[in-house]
């Protein structure tokens, strides 16, 4: 098999073609969709989802799921926002440390419950989804952190740019995607996550510390959600106890399954996830342009998840057929 057909057979190629076709189709109706300006809109729409998707990808690869990231995002954002509000003189980049630390702590708590008591991740994170959201209300007294409290340097990260008019936040997500790629593909621990997800029993027999890896993926997922939390404050300039991060988990799961991460664990690539996020971003930014009301967005997300699951199943069946045909 030559190199070109190998590239086209990859899952990522399929998503890329879908993005191109979708953009061309929208562009045919609304030419202004194919401009740099709308690329900018898409790029500014996706950073939070991309950050969350990197963590969720690792969790799904390890054959778990994390529903609590939206609330983790909200809680970390609220902690950081309150820190800025009550200690305005604090050095602002410290907020990143706090947000990531808080997020990692919440993620670890999920991981502990799941590994210590051998509980299914879905139920635990459904519980903590509500627990963390409730805690966000309690620490904030149900009050919003307004624009004036968020440091202007932080807000500037989403607007000002070092080069070519590309904001800092874009460089940041590129760095995160590259880091995740390196971690997942080129470190021992990263490969162990894949081994665990494709066959938990075999992974344990191979001497992989399953509890440690599970804790790690949930901590990472939480930490990235925390980072997304401070970036939310940067991007929108406020933190609201009820809105911030609500429904985030669904957008992220949609993006990740579109990106070809298998829900049966063990399969997933950073490139696929990034493309999945971009496809979701293109769809979301095209809707208002096409005059489709925003109320359809959730239905489209849901439909997209179901379709992606079906495609994933088709791909898997074909893979099984090819393997058994060769054998």
């Amino acid at each position: 098999m030559n190199t070109i057909s190998k590239i086209f057979l990859r899952r990522e190629a399929g998503i890329f073609v879908m993005i191109v076709l979708f953009c061309l189709a929208v562009g045919a109706f609304k030419p202004q969709f194919l401009t740099l300006q709308s690329l900018r809109i898409v790029l500014l729409l996706v950073p939070l989802i991309l950050i969350g998707a990197m963590g969720q990808m690792l969790v799904l690869v390890a054959r778990h799921v994390d529903l609590s990231i939206g609330s983790t995002l909200g809680f970390s954002a609220m902690v950081v926002g309150m820190m800025f509000k009550y200690y305005p003189e604090i050095w602002w980049p410290l907020g990143f440390l706090v947000a990531i630390g808080v997020g990692a702590g919440l993620g670890l708590f999920n991981g502990f419950l799941i590994t210590l008591f051998r509980l299914p991740a879905i139920i635990v994170t459904l519980g903590t989804l509500n627990l963390y959201r409730g805690l966000t209300y309690i620490i904030s007294n149900a009050k919003q952190i307004d624009r004036q409290y968020v440091p202007s340097e932080l807000k500037a990260m989403s607007q000002t740019s070092p080069i070519f008019g590309i904001p800092w936040i874009i460089f940041m997500i590129i760095a995160i995607a590259l880091l995740t790629y390196w971690f997942a593909m080129h470190t021992r621990v990263g490969r162990q996550i894949f081994a665990l997800g494709s066959n938990p029993v075999a992974a344990q027999l191979r001497g992989i510390n399953v509890s440690k890896i599970t804790l790690l993926v949930f901590a990472l997922s939480g930490a990235l959600a925390g980072l997304a939390g401070i970036m939310y404050a940067s991007r929108w300039g406020f933190v609201n106890p009820s809105n911030t991060g609500s429904g985030f988990e669904f957008q992220v799961i949609a993006a990740v399954v579109i990106g070809g991460v298998s829900i049966n664990g063990g399969v997933g690539t950073v490139l696929g996830t990034v493309l999945g996020v971009l496809l979701l971003g293109c769809v979301s930014s095209a809707l208002p342009l096409l005059g489709i009301p925003g109320t359809t967005q959730n239905a489209i997300y849901g439909a997209v998840i179901i379709i992606a699951l079906l495609i994933d199943r088709g791909v898997r069946q074909r893979a099984i057929k090819t393997i058994s045909a060769k054998a």
Binding site: T295, N298, Y301
Partner: peptide, 17 residues
């Protein structure tokens, strides 16, 4: 688990439509 997360969003979305 995953299917009904998908339909959870889908049905709510249809209701919104």
């Amino acid at each position: 688990i995953i299917v009904t997360i998908g339909t959870l969003i889908f049905y709510r979305g249809l209701a919104q439509v």
